[in-house]
Design a binder for these strands. Structure first.
Length: 362
DNA sequence: TCTGGGGTCCTAGGACCC
DNA sequence: TCTGGGGTCCTAGGACCC
């Protein structure tokens, strides 16, 4: 398959890593570092989802306390295996079974809290089981560059460097109060993480989303607002469709734009009442688009997001609920059913631009 | 030179109220 | 003319994760 050159690296081979290719950098940079590198399209999201479900089902056989942290990561609370040795045996068993039953490999981190398990799972790859027990923190974690610590990204690391903090150990031995003064809550967290402290629990219940959004990078920079409105409607329809599927209502609508100079701007608005109606949300989104656009030209990306979500059944029907709204809800429901039955793109609203080619389908 | 898309959480300032 | 202190809500933006 032909792969376009703009875009970013989602995953890299061990060989590419040796050339300094890193996740999320541009393919342009990757080619520069490693001439002749082979670039492939990713799988369809639905394929990832399928394998993710299979993995989750297998892991669920080992404990009920299991948290789906991301598409390819889970936390398992296995404290019922009281002996360290039997715990480790189970980790190796899972590692082998995944390879045998699914044909891909996994890294597993074994530790007494989530942070350390996560750190351990990111030690050398692939296909490994690592432990990071309390008495191993110093020997296995403190020597690593501070950038390896979970939740330390490209903005924070240079600031720590300028303070003379280069390794996780440096951070662990630094003065917590100074970190808090400089970084606030984030400072407290990074000091605790560097010392292996994390009291968060494995969350086995599926959490309802707190926000739902869709955005697209446009094939060309767009100046024409009517073109942007067409895309906005298509995005709003996707967002509200998902919102209704979750049985949630939104209280806030947010519109985001990115210009060709990579300026990110967003405007949001609290609604008078919670809703999942495509029409109502699009009406507000359109206003927000105008506000956000202002004098800006050459729009590279447009996105819409709904926030402050509440469960539909907990909402008291307000006195202002009227026939009109009821009609609108019925229309949304009919459209949703048709999409469910014949495919998402089966039916479109007037003015909705076809963005399905631009967006990877869920 | 080129930079995706989906999220969560935090901060800071302004408006407004008592 | 000069004007406290605390609290909540709303909004914009930023950092980080996968």
């Amino acid at each position: 398959m032909k792969v376009k050159d703009h875009g970013i690296v989602l995953a890299k081979s061990m060989e590419a890593k040796k050339y300094g290719v890193s996740t999320a950098e541009t393919i342009y940079m990757a080619r520069k570092k490693c001439p002749g590198i082979k670039v492939y399209d990713g799988l369809k999201y639905s394929k990832y989802r399928e394998y993710s479900d299979k993995l989750y089902n297998l892991l669920s056989q080992y404990t009920d306390i299991i948290e789906r942290y991301s598409i390819d990561e889970c936390f398992l609370d296995m404290t019922h295996f009281l002996q360290k040795d039997s715990l480790l045996d189970k980790a190796y068993e899972i590692n082998k079974r995944v390879k045998k039953e699914f044909g891909f490999t996994v890294n597993i981190g074994v530790a007494h809290n989530k942070l350390l398990a996560k750190m351990a799972s990111d030690f050398t790859k692939p296909d490994r089981v690592h432990t990071l027990y309390e008495d191993e923190i110093e020997s296995k974690m403190w020597g690593l560059p501070v950038s390896e610590l979970f939740m330390l990204g490209r903005k924070t690391v240079p600031k720590l460097y300028s303070m003379g903090i280069k390794t996780i150990g440096d951070l662990a031995k630094s003065d917590e109060r100074i970190l808090i003064k400089k970084f606030g809550k984030h400072g407290k967290m990074m000091w605790e993480y560097s010392n292996g402290i994390d009291n968060s629990e494995v969350q086995s219940k599926k959490r309802k989303p707190k926000s739902i959004g869709n955005s697209v990078t446009l094939p060309n920079d767009v100046i024409d607002i009517s073109k942007l409105e067409e895309v906005l409607l298509a995005l709003t329809e996707r967002v509200t469709y998902r919102l209704r599927k979750e049985n949630l209502l939104a209280n806030v609508v947010n519109v985001q734009l990115r210009t060709k100079d990579f300026e990110d701007v967003s405007h949001q608005k609290k609604l008078d009442g919670a809703t999942s109606s495509t029409k109502e949300i699009y009406f507000v989104a359109k206003q927000l688009l105008k506000e956000t656009l202002k004098e800006r030209k050459f729009i590279r990306l447009i996105g819409v997001r709904v926030d402050n979500l509440v469960p539909k059944d907990e909402l008291q029907l307000s006195l202002f609920d009227n026939k009109n709204r009821e009609k609108q809800n019925n229309l949304d429901n009919v459209i949703d059913k048709l999409k469910d039955k014949y495919g998402y793109d089966f039916i479109k609203r007037a003015g909705e631009m076809n963005v399905s080619q631009m967006i990877d389908k869920k």
